[in-house]
Design a binder for these strands. Structure first.
Lengths: 241, 241
DNA sequence: GTCTATAGTCGGATAGAC
DNA sequence: GTCTATCCGACTATAGAC
């Protein structure tokens, strides 16, 4: 099978043996994201991951060469997942960005776009699909103690999303999107949205909430909408000159 | 030594044997905060902690009864440390809070107080004393996966600080400090300040900064000042009705 | 490819000397 | 109180059967 170098987008007509292999590999990565995320790298045992994936410990060595490479594979999987979300919002913003480059997008419309962008991102943070958003804790751990895995995730997703935020903020404030003032505002806005899930323990206790549900999401989004709208009026005294 | 129940504020005239004991205990806690913070509970080994404290592994069992209790003792130590900082700002705000209760503090002055409060907190996050702020990573881990240790820290520090924020915000917006709208704004403002250090990895990469220094602190504080000042004007359409 | 069995490492806890 | 020595369990990785 020397021609099977590219495993991505494998056609459905492959022999079932390869499908099973790919499936084991996929389940291992999925289990790894979950267990590494909740237990941390050292806390997670390959036994537990293999058990959760419904396979054997030694298949980790076979597919990935060891615990460490499995960890990096999990990071790449997360980067890809968040990256897909960024792809979506990039598509959604394509027309607006084109108009920004031509200088024909009025700041008021950029405000509306930015508000919708923030709403989409909050939804992505909140959404509970099949495998929940277990990767979030994986990312939180990487932010506390960044390893090579963080750079992979940052490059594939965060940096791109921040650039989108900066582009819109730059349009709103009529400043170059790469200026420090705009970049700082982008990264602080990003941080505020993320605090929605990162401060979960604090928020739920202080608000007396059992979970972070749609009510919580709506309340946070309303606060962010107000903040974004204020960008229009607050541009004159920028945090960085 | 049956009267030695209260170990706090032990006079300097105690026999040197007890001083040595207390010192080992203290060094163990300090080392535990550092190692647990950077490695996590499972990742941290008692051997490493003991080595960093300059003592033997078995002294952990002697002083704390095991790894788990050492972890809780480290959490209490952190709670106490942050709690001291909250004590300070409570003192600083004492007069203002009294006037709030009497209804004689004008919102404009509350804005100035809140801005100073945020500045003090950012400084506390940034300050690099002897043992740096290693406890920050300990807290970040606890927020991602809260254990009993988080509740101890939350009760002794965060909840008190949030109440201070809410009291000032309530005065500014002329709303009761315990109303959901005010509490949410307090917790979001808190989250924004914390993102200053939690998003360190993202911020430094995106801003091209090597470290988070005074320049970074000033830039972030300027942004927060603006946000706080905006509370005065933005009170009419609250995020929670 | 997937499994069992096992080698080799390292962790936490404890007994006992001093 | 602090140290050395040691036990025992859990872990990763690997060799080899099928």
């Amino acid at each position: 099978m020397s021609f099977s170098a590219s495993l991505q987008n494998a056609p459905a007509s492959l022999p079932s043996a390869e499908k099973v292999q790919d499936d084991t590999r996929r389940r291992l990565i999925q289990a790894a994201v979950s267990v590494f995320g909740s237990q941390g790298f050292e806390g997670a045992s390959t036994r537990r991951i293999a058990a959760l994936a419904g396979t054997n410990i030694s298949s980790i060595a076979y597919h990935f060469g060891g615990k460490e490479n499995l960890y990096l594979a999990a990071a790449d999987s997360i980067a890809q997942e968040i990256g897909k979300k960024v792809d979506e919002v990039e598509d959604f913003l394509a027309e607006g960005r084109e108009r920004i480059r031509r200088g024909t997008l009025p700041p008021e419309e950029a405000v509306a776009l930015l508000q919708r962008l923030c709403g989409a991102w909050l939804d992505a943070l909140l959404v509970k699909k099949k495998h929940d958003h277990e990767w979030a804790w994986f990312v939180v751990r990487e932010k506390a103690n960044p390893t090579a895995a963080f750079d992979r995730i940052y490059d594939a997703s965060f940096s791109r999303f921040l650039d989108l935020l900066a582009e819109l903020i730059g349009c709103i404030r009529q400043l170059p999107p790469r200026s420090p003032a705009v970049r700082l505002q982008a990264v602080l806005l990003f941080g505020k949205m993320l605090s929605f899930e990162r401060e979960r323990a604090t928020i739920t206790r202080y608000m007396g909430w059992k979970t972070l549900d749609e009510t919580a999401r709506d309340a946070v989004l309303a606060a962010i909408h107000k903040e974004v709208a204020y960008l229009l009026k607050g541009g004159e005294n920028s945090p960085l000159k």
